[in-house]
Amino acid sequence: MATESANGVSSPELNERDVVITTNDNRNFTVKIGVARVSKTINNMIQDLGESLDLSSGIPLPNVDGPIFEKVLEWCEEHKNAPEIKVEQDPHTRERKWFTMTEWEEEYFRKFLSHLWDLAMAANYLEIPSLYYYTCQKLAERIKGRTPEQIREMFGIEDDLTEEEKAEIRRTNVWCTY
């Protein structure tokens, strides 16, 4: 098996090379290093491994499964040259300012609407700020204006709170209107 050095070549050249990434269900993905580097976790691995990096044997990702990583890769390919996103919040109310999504991003989330929680967790583990914050915003968008019952139904959560616990929560949150 040929072992290629990651440190021996300049960065633009290295970005064009392929690296194999293995997910927790033992699926192998051959990805361009430039695309994989959108993830800070993978980028750090590439940098840390340096000369000992074996591009063909693969980088293991024990916390991400194949189907989700496939979706993450789609995002990375589209955002490989995108600038770092800036997270801003209202200085008075501390509410986060919403990002404006492109048509492609809207379509991407529309496609994977049922996997938003998994996507957010994968993006968090892989350290992809753009995907992470955009997914969080999309989740917030889905929660906004819905009642707890509707949220439960939407995410497939069962009601395990007792009436006493609900009354206590309502009592504690003085300013909330439910």
């Binding site: 919040q89 109310t93 501390r94 509410e95 986060r96 919403w98 957010a120 992470y132 914050y133 969080c136 915003q137 989740l139 917030a140 968008e141 929660i143 906004k144 204006g145 009642t147 707890p148 949220i151 439960r152 959560i157 069962e158 009601d159 395990d160 709170l161 609900k166 929560i169 309502r170 949150n173 300013w175 909330c176 209107t177 439910y178």
Partner: peptide, 18 residues
């Protein structure tokens, strides 16, 4: 991170989910 995108009323309402 999800709830910080919402106002406090919407965010605290989620406590009643589960």
């Amino acid at each position: 991170d999800v709830l910080q995108c919402l106002n406090r009323n919407e965010a605290l309402k989620c406590q009643l989910v589960s």
